[in-house]
Amino acid sequence: MPPEPAGTLRLALPPTLAAVADAQAALRAWLAAAKAPPALIFNAELVAEEILANVVRHGGLANDALVSLEARQACDGLCLTVEDGGAPFDPRTVPEPPKPASLDQAVPGGLGLKLVRGMAAALAYERTAAGLNRFSVTLAAPRHGP
């Protein structure tokens, strides 16, 4: 058995943007130690940010609530799972924002889930028996460097 790094990273964070940044840093360090390719590390950080920041900003969680992030190395990529106790929310049901015809018509925002969808090999959601949102994103390892 390889002694390190472990195949799974588990974090519990308070619902703040500062904690999201801490979680990204921990994820980055864990993946770098596992010698993951830079593109996979970048995509993992981006997906973690989009999901966690969404929960922090829109989940309506109490200040003392905790959000969990699990990162698990799959055979050819990475699976990120976020659990939170906010109102039931299936991110897969959010429609894509319309493509603006011009800068004047552009409505800033709503791009986070579009980015996640674009990077994900698979998305899964369930409302658990314990009453948590459980959202999982599978990222394939890039075939080519960097």
Binding site: F42, E45, E50, A53, P108, G109, G110, L111, G112, K114
Partner: peptide, 16 residues
């Protein structure tokens, strides 16, 4: 070295 959707939103908002 990194940008997420909130960074995109900032750039679009200022450019608009």
């Amino acid at each position: 070295s990194f940008i997420g959707s909130l960074g995109l939103r900032m750039l679009i908002s200022v450019a608009r």
